[in-house]
């Protein structure tokens, strides 16, 4: 048994601490809190430093499929109260696509997530308690997927 962290994981935590403590000043947090906004500048900063590829395979531009690494990102975002909600994008979407998506969608979607594009998930529906039986429907018509329905509580959509 070994509870010690790998050295690169401690490095991820240290450099995130550095970036986030410089970026997330009291003034900035107040401003975002008052306006209920999403911090685009922080998103670019994290992307530029490769943090959006944590937990994703190297062949799509990520830094490896270790979910512990990705956990450090969420731990630090929470610690610094960063005005950025990324679990929908980096977990719900990216990890699901990585596991179930075909090579083409992995390349395209994971690549653009790492580059700083935001995806979100749409799971919940009004008046429907059972996510296993969605009322939203997807039909194939003339080689195209036609989706119709209503979703709500989608994170930063």
């Amino acid at each position: 048994m070994d509870f010690s962290e790998k050295s690169h994981q401690t490095e991820i935590r240290d450099s995130l601490n550095k970036i986030l403590s410089e970026h997330c000043s009291q003034e900035l947090l107040k401003e975002y809190d008052a306006n209920f906004k999403h911090d685009e500048s922080l998103l670019s900063l994290l992307s530029a430093n490769g943090f959006l590829g944590l937990g994703l395979n190297e062949k799509y531009g990520g830094s490896g499929e270790d979910l512990y690494d990705l956990g450090i990102l969420f731990e630090r975002l929470g610690y610094h109260a960063a005005p950025l909600s990324l679990s929908g994008c980096l977990v719900d979407v990216a990890q699901t696509i990585q596991k179930f998506g075909n090579e083409e969608s992995c390349k395209e979607i994971l690549g653009s997530i790492i580059a700083g594009e935001i995806y979100t998930s749409a799971i919940l529906e009004p008046s429907n308690q059972d996510p296993e039986n969605p009322m939203t429907a997807a039909k194939i018509e003339n080689d195209q997927l036609i989706i119709s329905g209503t979703k709500y509580l989608s994170e930063i959509s």
């Binding site: 048994m1 070994d2 509870f3 010690s4 962290e5 790998k6 512990y68």
Partner: peptide, 8 residues
Amino acid sequence: MLIQLNQK
């Protein structure tokens, strides 16, 4: 990190 009992 490896949090499991080994084979032995």
